[in-house]
Design a protein around this nucleic acid. Structure first.
Lengths: 225, 225
DNA sequence: AATAATAATTAGATTAGTCTAATTTTAAAT
DNA sequence: ATTTAAAATTAGACTAATCTAATTATTATT
């Protein structure tokens, strides 16, 4: 008996929905509702519902009004592969083509959709099997596992603590450019000098220079432990 | 007075039409008719006419029933940039990711559409400013010039001639795999031992091994001079 | 020049992905 | 338990890119 090797190629749009569902699944414990996805990919909720039907049909997600959407094992495989390619391409752009970390995301959004079975692995090998992308996010491995590392938000640290930046939560160009301005990179050491009770601003020391950052800032940076 | 810097982003489909028009313009002296393009990109002639209207509207081509289509200076710029990116990506895939030359074309067809102003130049520099792609085709430079080199079809050579392969005209995987089988690469030396008058087959010597190739083959390989 | 063959064009339909504007459900709050 | 607010859904329309099936022009051939 001949068994069809299910290798249905997804459209770019489908891939973006799967990626968004994956992202929200990772990020929160909330249910993945049509409105949540609509907000994430800046699209109308009606469009999301249409796409949910299509993805359900293809057995890439399950969806139920009350439980929300969830990726099937098949859907997880597809999403992980996109995230893997995205992050590997980011490393390529940053390490090899010398783009700055605020430029790589947009291009990786395009590159992640390049279709070729061997591509992720070839790229991985060429780059020397990197574990993290330029924003400190872990790169899913070929077998689908995601390197684990303990990180907490900067906002969880106390006065007097010294900590090391390991990842950036908000990877918008605006925030990354702000970090550049403050000379903060992955690996930078930050000392919490003071906390403003009024608005939870932090007075921090970075490379001998003292500055004050907002609570929003402290919620956008991950540090070790 | 504020002058709009005309930087209208083309859709992937528009880019493919421009590329096809460019290719046929380079390849032949015939007029670029809707049917010719239809054949080239395997699409219906009615679709081509619709797209011609759109591209004319955007001032990327001129089109006239009797003269056929032609790229405007603007259209040439766009087409050259796509070809440049295509060939640079081919070099990347071949040289860095170690893909074989029959695999690179399909992926480069996707990669050529990645949008980023600096990309072609960054890639060019990273690759060490290559002049030819893995199939021996010249890579347009940043200023739009195309490295010139004299080449003739293998079919133009006479019995007794020794020549060196400089480019491949037919870059289909089928043909490239056949060349692999014959151990023929860019740079290979070929001696014409005999020509069969009946069907213009050639008896050739390649790396000490003698074989017979068809007229179609001899029309698909370029050699120096 | 008349006819046949080929090419160009138009009209109308189709698909994927999107939208807006209802309408129906569900959840929250009084 | 109602009412209100928010979310989910449906219906119908729109755009880009395609198609098929005519129809109209051109070219080639007798």
């Amino acid at each position: 008996m001949f068994v069809e090797t299910e290798q249905i190629v997804q459209t770019l749009t489908e891939e973006n929905y799967l990626k968004a569902i994956f992202k929200l699944t990772q990020a929160s414990l909330q249910k993945i509702s049509p409105t949540a996805i609509a907000q994430e990919i800046e699209v109308n909720a009606a469009s999301v519902i249409d796409m949910f039907k299509k993805l359900k049909e293809k057995e890439l997600i399950s969806y139920d009004k009350r439980k929300g959407a969830a990726l099937t094992p098949q859907g997880i495989r597809v999403a992980l592969n996109i995230v893997r390619k995205h992050r590997l391409w980011e490393v390529f752009l940053f390490e090899k083509l010398k783009y700055s970390w605020d430029e790589v995301h947009e291009m990786a959004e395009q590159l992640e959709h390049i279709q070729n079975d061997a591509l992720a692995n070839r790229l991985d090998e060429f780059l020397g099997f990197p574990v993290f992308d330029p924003h400190g996010d872990p790169i899913p491995k070929a077998n689908g596992s995601i390197p684990k590392f303990s990180k907490v938000l900067l906002s969880a640290k106390k006065i007097g603590d010294e900590c090391q930046v390991v990842a950036i939560k908000d990877t918008s160009p605006e925030f990354l450019q702000y970090l550049n301005q403050l000379s903060i990179d992955i690996g930078s050491r930050i000392v919490i000098k003071d906390k403003v009770a009024f608005d939870n601003s932090l007075v921090i020391l970075i490379k001998g220079h003292q500055t004050t950052v907002s609570e929003k800032f402290a919620h956008s940076v991950f540090v070790k432990q």
